[in-house]
Write a protein that binds this DNA or RNA. Structure first.
Lengths: 341, 341
DNA sequence: ATGAAAGCGCTAACAT
DNA sequence: ATGTTAGCGCTTTCAT
């Protein structure tokens, strides 16, 4: 660990500038000299210090990634996408997991700034709550480019890549309508989150566009958990004028529905049709075919990383524009949406 | 971004040494002076550079984490555990995802060394194949403490935390035996991986200890994929002298079994009992109760991080001992193991 | 209690 | 084509 560029210089009988040149392929170096240097590097098992280089260059080549829940495959896939692009550009990733905790998120941001990272990719825990002011202040005063991934930070404009939840929900509900369903319920997500709001909007839009009246009693407010969805589904199944289809606003909640269906001996789609938002890989593997809206997670990660790289390469110290990309989710039909008399 | 310790010194009318002292709470600083400095820091929104500090201290406070598949919740949970402990000790995590690719893993190791990280936590992609020599050479010559997580690098001894796969498998099979099963099949993992070998060993041990002859035709060699497990299960169901229970050596493979069962109208556990290794959260949520051996993933991450911290604090440049911890997996019974005539 | 100065390992003009 | 030198932003003796 103690071998430095000077050791190499000494061993090769050249100056440290020359060593630096062969290290960076910059400037002119006689072939013979280069070989000597390379040999010394090999022999001493030398690895240059990125720390020293960063300090000297005032540039770290590392970017920070902040996620709320690393053990959720949704974020795992985002990171996978981020990582792929980062790899291609030889960027390091410093990972911060916040456990959905705003204070940890703030702490992470501070940490990252100390590390003099080039930019930040963040999937904000943030909802509409009122801590937002300090939160925003922190992000904005970072002086570092930030790209949001599928989140929403109130009152403020940031670069980001998002999913078009409205369109996704619209497509799902439209499909149900096309199948012949008219009594379509929705189980929403936590309504202080942007995706939940947008998905509900998409649901309403689809009904309106097809002249189906929106019935408040068909709108059920969930909270993204399968437990709540389970309870709601039980209720739905007890309704006198029961819907024939449910649009479920998140993957976890789909699981709750399935459990309730199972207990009440409800067959999909014979007794109840269903379309979810976001996939649950496992269900397909075990042969349980549930249609869903597929938000392109890996793609989101890639897109965000690319956007950040673009911003960094533009080289502007102050940002002059807000970049936003909306990714379109795909509808994946498995048969659970069918209308069967 | 341009504000440095010298700016603060100037603003506060002191030397940079003094600023450093208040930053690190070291040495003596008059209260009044400290306040001036703190004020300047606040006003200029100054964040010290970890890079410069690292260079000066020859110590980075960051550790590298290398995993093969970030989007697999198994590794997600490990990282979550690692992260928790790292947080408590104010350590940064540099994440490397290798996509099960040995070359990427090697590259990651090099990258990490350049970053002068303090230590490495790695879940090796490595199996028994022959690239091992370069691989081992690389790790050993890193000159950095390494802690393995649940992996196995052939021919070599490293610090590490592992799961006692033998005991896990033994417990599972013993449970089946206690239930009254005698014809018990196993679907193994990829046999060039250590966990697969050990789980098979545990299976055999349980049979032997209970005087049940090992029947080669009940040993099925899988490869951790659900597709293969699906095919194998179909075969099993066709056997003349069909087993009454299957011990399935990985969570993904359990899914393949379930699909096959479903297609053939096999009821669990009436027609076939089953116990898997590693949980599949989703199955429980939808009310499908499959018993399984639970390897404590988050715990493994924590334990590994703690071990690394221990090693670092021991302060030895050369390691004088190999530390190894084996974590005991727990049996979680859900009813799928029952013997029903 | 505070300051001056050397040094961490590298890069990048500037010389030669 | 190669060497000299001055930083990069911080910590840490050593003085005072």
């Amino acid at each position: 660990m103690a071998v430095t560029i000077d050791d190499i210089a000494k061993a090769a009988g050249v100056s440290r500038a020359t060593v630096s040149r062969v290290l960076n392929d910059s400037g002119y170096v006689k072939d013979e000299t280069r070989k000597k240097v390379l040999k010394a590097i090999k022999e001493l098992n030398y690895t240059p210090s990125a720390i020293a280089r960063s300090l000297s260059k005032k540039k770290t080549n590392t970017i920070g990634v902040v996620v709320p829940e690393i053990n959720n495959p949704f974020f795992g896939e985002i990171i996978k996408g981020v990582n792929q692009v980062a790899d291609e550009h030889n960027l390091n990733l410093i990972l911060c997991n916040t456990d959905e905790d705003v204070d940890k998120e703030l702490k992470a941001l501070k940490l990252l700034k100390e590390q003099r990272i080039q930019g930040i990719l963040i999937t904000p825990t943030s909802t509409d709550s009122d801590y937002n002011s300090e939160y925003l202040w922190t992000i904005e005063n970072l002086g570092i480019p930030v790209v949001l991934i599928d989140g929403h930070v109130k009152y403020s404009n940031f670069n980001g890549v998002f999913i078009d939840h409205i369109k996704g929900a619209y497509d799902a509900v439209k499909t149900l309508i096309d199948e012949g369903h008219e009594k379509i319920a929705i189980i929403t997500g936590r309504m202080d989150s942007r995706p939940a709001k947008e998905r509900l909007a998409g649901y309403k839009k689809a009904l309106k566009m097809h002249n189906i009246p929106i019935r408040e009693e068909y709108i059920f407010y969930g909270d993204y958990t399968h437990e709540k969805a389970y309870k709601i589904t039980k209720e739905i199944l007890k309704m006198k004028d029961r819907p024939t289809a449910i649009f479920v606003s998140s993957n976890m909640m789909v699981l709750g529905c399935i459990k309730a269906f199972d207990e009440e001996n409800i067959q999909i789609p014979k007794d109840m049709a269903i379309i979810g938002f976001d996939k649950v890989e496992v269900l397909n593997i075990i042969g349980m075919n549930i249609s869903f809206i597929n938000g392109p997670t890996i793609e989101m990660g890639k897109t965000a990383m690319n956007m950040l790289i673009d911003i960094l390469q533009s080289g502007k110290t102050t940002e002059t524009e807000i970049k936003t990309i909306k990714l379109l989710p795909q509808l994946v039909l498995k048969g659970s949406e069918k209308f069967i008399e």
